[in-house]
């Protein structure tokens, strides 16, 4: 696949994210951020990919700037064009600002110990923050301590905290509507939380039957808000309809190993219109599958395409914006595919 460009970056990449495009932008995204994990000094970096001039793509991604990050980057989201929210394994949540005029990164806001263990033995007690999601200016974080925090980018303290929201580890979070969020945990449950309610209880719990397979990632359909997808440790992709029932609508055994991250494409292919859902996800190791599910109304079946050639080590994160895909691996490389739909 010659439209894929790669770069070895000498750090294991845990997250890769495209910078969102301004509303009126026509050109494809050109800047993405990466976060590393399991290094002695972890870094958050911004990369630029060359202009897509006359169908030709110039070279490998170039480093724009980077900044040290305390602990592993567990999750990362762009808050807006120039601010990035990063979740750390130390339990802190940091907002970084990208100064575009002189290409530097600086810390804009930090919530220390946003996630922590109540603990008598150890003094530090920070618990890893596993997931973060933004809906400017609101930021929601979840962690290994089963806590849900709601922050506002401009406020020093948390707006809302739900202690003991979950008895096991919360692995991921996403917005369902402006006031509702979805979380997945390590005992196979999908929970909906409504911030309008003052009770610290989920408004709804969905669970996989029997198995208790940990769920690692969650995302909702970009247009049909009631359709939600989760990826589990056994590689099972579950599609849920939150309007009905408490069990998944369909299960897809897409890979042999764990799904680490999944993402509904924010853009659909025009000619497939309503019926297309695009889904990509990956495995934690071995056969890395990036699947593209294409629900064809005439045939009513899913079509799965492997987008990433066989990798030996796991792909930890991927992000799709328009026709562009970026992903980072434990083999310390980042890959950019600019013609996903070609």
């Amino acid at each position: 696949m010659e439209e894929v460009s790669a770069r070895f970056v000498a750090q294991k990449i845990s997250k890769a994210r495209w910078r969102p495009l301004p509303a009126a932008a026509l050109q494809p995204p050109d800047i993405f951020a990466t976060g590393s994990w399991d290094n002695e000094d972890n870094r958050l970096a911004l990369w630029a990919v060359g202009e897509l001039g006359s169908g030709e793509y110039l070279g490998e991604p170039q480093l724009l700037c980077d900044i040290g990050h305390d602990g592993d980057v567990m999750d990362m989201q762009f808050l807006d064009q120039e601010r990035i929210v990063a979740a750390s394994s130390t339990g802190s949540v940091t907002v970084f600002r990208h100064h575009q005029n002189n290409q530097t990164l600086s810390v804009n806001q930090r919530w220390e110990k946003a996630h922590y263990h109540v603990d008598q033995d150890t003094s530090c007690g920070g618990a890893a923050c596993t997931g973060v999601i933004c809906n400017n200016p609101e930021i929601v974080t979840v962690g290994e301590d089963g806590r849900i925090n709601l922050f506002r980018a401009d406020q020093k303290d948390a707006v809302r905290t739900i202690d003991n929201a979950d008895s096991s580890t919360l692995h991921a979070v996403t917005f369902l509507r402006t006031t509702e969020i979805l979380t997945v945990n390590s005992i196979g449950q999908l929970k909906i939380w409504d911030f309008r309610q003052q009770r610290n209880e989920p408004s709804q719990i969905f669970s996989l039957t029997g198995e208790r397979v940990p769920l690692h990632c969650v995302d909702r359909h970009p247009n049909q808000q009631h359709i939600v997808a989760t990826g589990g440790q056994d590689g099972m992709l579950s599609i849920w309809d939150i309007r009905q029932g408490t069990m998944p609508v369909s299960l897809l055994n897409a890979h042999e190993a764990e799904s680490e991250y999944l993402d509904w494409s924010r853009e659909k292919k025009a000619f497939l219109e309503q019926s297309t859902t695009y889904l990509s996800h990956n495995t934690i190791n071995q056969s890395v599958v990036c699947a593209w599910l294409n629900n064809d109304p005439t045939k009513d079946r899913m079509e799965i395409t492997n987008l990433i050639p066989n990798q030996t080590l796991s792909v930890n994160s991927l992000d799709v914006l328009g026709p562009c895909l970026v992903y980072g691996t434990d083999a310390e490389a980042i890959y950019v595919n600019r013609q996903l739909f070609a």
Binding site: D72, S89, A128, T130, E144, S186, Q233
Partner: peptide, 15 residues
């Protein structure tokens, strides 16, 4: 250090 890392190691052993 983190559950994420533990899961990776666990996966290696389970396989």
């Amino acid at each position: 250090n983190t559950e994420q890392k533990a899961l990776k190691v666990l996966r290696i052993c389970e396989q």
